[in-house]
Amino acid sequence: MPDDFHTAFADALRTGRTDPLQPYLAEAGAAGRLSVYRNNVVRGAIEALRAAFPAIDRLIGSRLFDALARAYWHTHPPERPTLILYGDAFADYLAGAEPVAGLPWLADVARHDRAWLEAHHAPGGRPLGAADAAGLAPETLPALVPGLQPSVRLLTSPWPAYDIWHRNRVEPDDAPMRADPGQYFSLLWRKDGTVCSRMLHAGEHAFLDALGGGAPLETAAQAGLAAEPGFDPAAAFAAALNDSLLKGPLT
């Protein structure tokens, strides 16, 4: 059960108000030293977010990033005693943050940073490989329900968020940016310990999305065709095997 000391201390960390702590301190004026803890706590959270959202840091600059990360820490404090996955609501927060309201694509770029982090820490497991698939009777393929590897993240955006993200994290450049509205699909996943990413067409996105939802290959192929008339299910299946996107081995 929290007592007055801990409550006063936690309040002081949040607000900087140290008066309620004074009765517990041995010296008058010593409460100013609380800023050591306050700096550690706030700075630690900000740096954890910066490490998790490097594209956002590059896009908006470290000063604005600091201010937004600090505000996020106030409204979304860490709840787990580890910061490795802190920031799960940061993209949503950015979507509503007034200082970046002029960058409507920023939240979706942040979703790519978040997808990278989740893919990085996701469970592994042997993927379904081309050799596994070759061993299957062709007539069984339509009913196959492979599912997606736990690291796979599918993203959709009305902005070219993948392109912006890629050019601010994976291969940074300073070329002028275009942000034409449209419908954009992208994929992040981990293969051999490395997080990979690429853009998707509507058909392949629908195909993988259906597989991720537990659909058999045939249903997923139909979803792909419905999303994009020129969709090639055989090529998409081969690419999924090659990229280690599917769960395996078969049972």
Binding site: P2, D3, F5, H6, T7, F9, A10, L13, Y24, Y37, N40, V41, G44, A45, A48, P77, P78, E79, R80, P81, L83
Partner: peptide, 21 residues
């Protein structure tokens, strides 16, 4: 040290009061 209170995690090693409790 302590670092959590009421489900909120403060990522630092905060001072434990040296009391009997």
């Amino acid at each position: 040290a302590w670092s959590s209170l009421g489900g909120r995690y403060f990522n630092d090693l905060l001072p434990t009061p040296m009391t009997q409790t």
